[in-house]
Amino acid sequence: MTDLLLVAGLSLLTAAIVMTAAAYAATRAGRVSVVDTAWGIALLGTAVGCAAVSGSWQSWLLVLLVGVWAGRLSSHIFMRSRGRGEDPRYRELLGGTLDEVGIGVAVRKVFLVQGAAVWLVSLPLQAAAVAGLDRAWTVWIGVAVWVVGVLFESIGDAQLTAYRADPDRRPVMDRGLWAWTRHPNYFGDACVWWGIWLAGGLASGWLPGLVSALSPIAMTVWLVWITGARLLEKTMMKRPGYPEYAARTSMFVPLPPRRSG
């Protein structure tokens, strides 16, 4: 019980510190989308704290998995958003820009919610630190699923970056992974956290696995319906050619493109 309270409290404290720093950074930058960079940092800090308490190779492996994911994601988002204004998803969520609604609204609608989400998503890391390893083979299945997720994220982002740099690009990116799913990066992100759940939560036993399954479920719901695909598509559907692309391409799970009428 002592380890459970220590790990849960440490994880919550890490999320609170990082999101407080992110809220301050948002006031300096004039946009709340900086929270996307802070997300990975908060989860990496949580993973390190859990591993420090546990000391097991399983927890330190999870630090490596979270660290690779967080480093790639945070650096990509930072480079992509540098010099740009507010992300349309957050403008939609807030009902205006940060200057228009104020930091209080942003803290309530974004930073508190994402801080709680960090704690929830970190449940497999906490489970591994408290319960320990029960079945090693599940760890390696989780690593395989994690690899699939990182590849989808990395390749999808690289293809999108090349598309945006092409002066003769088509109106809509519908090549490579983007021909099979409209959001390969979000799908990859979900796979990463299902993999971490397998390697952390389920590998620590059926009960820790059952409780910590809230993590990948919440991440998937978040990516599809909260601040991910659905919210982004409200903006994307206004672009010429996107409704036709959406009609033939799976929104989330990769599937063969549907034939047009």
Rank of each mutant, 00 (worst) to 15 (best):
G149K: 09
D174T: 12
A165L: 12
W193E: 10
A158E: 10
T161A: 15
R182E: 00
I155K: 13
C191H: 11
I196R: 04
D157E: 08
A179N: 07
G201S: 01
R175M: 14
S154R: 14
G200C: 10
G156I: 00
I155S: 07
R169C: 12
L160S: 10
L177H: 09
P184W: 02
E153N: 01
G156Q: 06
G200N: 03
F152N: 02
I155Q: 12
D168V: 12
L177P: 10
P184Q: 02
V172R: 07
A179L: 02
M173Y: 07
V172P: 05
I196K: 10
A203F: 13
F152C: 04
D189Q: 13
G188F: 01
W178P: 12
G156R: 04
N185M: 11
D174M: 14
W194G: 12
Y163E: 05
A162K: 13
M173V: 09
M173Q: 15
A190N: 03
W193S: 06
V192W: 06
D174Q: 15
L151M: 13
W178G: 11
E153L: 03
T161L: 15
G201Y: 12
T181E: 09
Q159K: 13
A165V: 13
P184M: 12
R182I: 11
F152K: 01
E153D: 03
R164C: 08
F152I: 04
D166R: 08
A165E: 15
G188Q: 06
A179T: 07
W178H: 01
L198C: 00
G156K: 01
W197M: 10
F152L: 11
I155L: 10
E153T: 00
A203V: 02
V192C: 14
V148W: 13
V148K: 03
A158K: 14
P184V: 07
F187C: 04
L198W: 02
R169M: 05
A158F: 11
G176Q: 04
I196M: 12
Y186Q: 04
L151N: 14
V192K: 05
A162V: 02
D189F: 15
L198N: 14
A179K: 11
Y163C: 04
E153P: 05
L198D: 05
V148S: 00
G195P: 14
A199P: 03
D189M: 07
W194Y: 05
R175P: 03
R170V: 13
I155W: 12
I155M: 09
I196F: 03
W180F: 14
F187M: 10
R182D: 03
T181C: 08
D166A: 06
D166F: 13
A190L: 03
Q159F: 01
P184H: 06
A162I: 04
A203S: 09
C191K: 11
G156Y: 05
V150M: 13
G149N: 01
G176V: 08
F152R: 06
A162C: 02
W194C: 00
D157S: 02
H183E: 08
